[in-house]
Amino acid sequence: MAMWGKDPRVSVRYPGRMEVEKYVYTPGLHGLELAKALKEGRLIGTRCGDTIYFPPTTFCPDHAMGEPVEIKGPWIVEAYTVVREDSSSRRLDKPVVIAYITPLDAEGGLIHYVEASEEEIAPGIEVEPVFAPPEKRKGTIRDILYFKVKNSAQE
């Protein structure tokens, strides 16, 4: 009866690989507006009635079409974390500060790098985006190189 059980002879393992070379994601409707704005060093969100959402969502919570509008900030650090290891658990030479940053003129926010020391970074401080040089911008969120602490000594 006990035909099935541990039998090392029958343990065969097969390697496999996801045979998709890459995925290409389109930015979408307001996403395309954001991409164009990023190339110009600006940020946009979606206006739904009295509320503005960032990042832009195209459609509003009630499913009406939203309207793209510029987001000017100021940008505030809501929460942060300090990363000391890379994804393979190797110690980083310099810790990386990642923060959830919200604009005061919209609902929502984004996760991005902050160029700040561990002493400087704190919830509630004001930061501002630093864009890549225009010729290097691709319309993605990495066109913002990082956020820097406003009025800090760093240039």
Binding site: Y25, T26, P27, G28, L29, G31, L32, T58, F59, D62, H63
Partner: peptide, 23 residues
């Protein structure tokens, strides 16, 4: 061009409109 969620929204909005309903 639309993202998957935008495609869902476009079809859903049209269905709601054709039913004369809102979300």
């Amino acid at each position: 061009l639309e993202t998957p969620r935008e495609l869902a929204w476009e079809a859903a909005s049209m269905a709601l409109e054709s039913a004369g309903l809102t979300l």
